[in-house]
Computed example of a mutant assay.
Amino acid sequence: MRREATGTYDTTVAGGETVRAFTPMALPPSPDIDLREGLRQPFEAAAAALGRLDAVTELLPDTAYFVYGYVRKEAVLSSQIEGTQSSLSDLMLHEAGGVPGVLRDDVVETSNYVAALYHGIRRLRDDFPLSNRLMREMHTKLLASGRGAAMMPGEFRRSQNWIGGSRPGNAAFVPPPPNRVEECMAALERFIHATDDDLPALVRAGLTHVQFETIHPFLDGNGRLGRLLITLMLCDAGLLREPLLYLSLYFKRHRNTYYELLNEVRHTGDWEAWLRFFLEGVHEVAEGAVATARSALGLVAANRARIQEGRRASSALRVHRAMVERPVDSINGLAERTGLSGPTVAAALKLLQGLGFVSEVTGRQRGKIFAYDTYLGVLREGTEEPPG
């Protein structure tokens, strides 16, 4: 459905140039979104896949173990969209105290993403509302260090930004002027919590993502926070008990379509085309996450069975369990988390290496770090990690 007006334009100055900045109308769209107009089937398919993803967490022996790896997989993908080169292995090696194979700033930015997500989820579980205040708190975590640390962490922007192009005059899109950001975000917060429009939570999340990206309220980190917001809204609505749905890989694979549809919403108000794309992405990604969870569960069970066949199975099983929780770690780290002595952990790791499950990744004589390669392989499926 096409709508005549989706926002207004204001003349503003950016980078010494006078440009037209777009301020979107408050949500929900008018006229209302009609799920019967080509959206019923993709909505039902996405909702069903989301239900299966939520249910699969009951099959996992300890959901936190799988969430640890899956959250970091999303952090890597979302950060790669913004140009970082860190991989899942780089991130986990950094967290274990090793030296990743890429620029430190890239890994720090990815690690900050993990911190921002966990902060948001903790706050929601403490019954703190999904609000502008929470978004600013998460933004503070996201830009706590690294290249974005000087870009007003935790504060809405007070200067004009732009998207695409080498300068404001040839930008692909110019978001609202800084003096309109507060009112736009206040309206978005009201929409997030609205209960009088009969919109399903899944559709509300899709609409909110576009609106957030259009407002672009921060100087940096908008893309990453905008993608995080989708998962937070689904968890807040009770559609997911764990933060296991992430659309970064889908957006990355369909980058051109993603940007085209965002612009179509702004220019013509074609929210339905965007929602169809969004719901198809939720369906695809949720099904993929279910398959990954089942593969991980099967792999861990098969590996445990192999370990139980050998000697010193008890300590090896404890180390193996710790490596499911954190697939890259040092001997000292594993000793601390398992309660075993360093020599006992080292012997267990030698057994796991002999079985082909684990490898040492630093090549050092001291401070060795080990990776649960086969498990990391399952987590990496479907990602396009950069070399290095």
Rank of each mutant, 00 (worst) to 15 (best):
G101Y: 10
V102M: 10
V102N: 13
V102W: 11
L103I: 11
R104G: 10
D105M: 08
D105W: 08
D105F: 06
D106Y: 12
V108T: 15
E109Y: 06
E109T: 05
E109S: 12
T110V: 12
N112W: 00
N112K: 05
Y113D: 00
V114K: 04
V114W: 04
L117W: 02
L117A: 06
L117I: 12
Y118D: 11
H119M: 02
H119A: 07
H119G: 04
G120I: 02
G120M: 03
R123H: 03
L124F: 07
D126E: 13
D127S: 15
D127T: 14
F128C: 06
F128D: 09
F128N: 05
F128R: 14
P129F: 10
L130V: 04
L130E: 01
S131T: 11
S131N: 09
N132A: 07
N132I: 04
N132C: 13
N132R: 13
R133V: 13
R133C: 03
R133H: 15
R133P: 00
R133G: 11
R136S: 08
E137N: 09
M138W: 06
H139I: 01
T140P: 00
T140D: 05
K141S: 09
L143V: 02
A144M: 02
G146I: 06
R147G: 01
R147V: 01
R147H: 03
G148M: 02
G148L: 02
A150R: 14
A150L: 12
A150N: 11
M152K: 14
M152S: 14
E155R: 14
E155L: 11
R157D: 05
R157A: 10
Q160G: 08
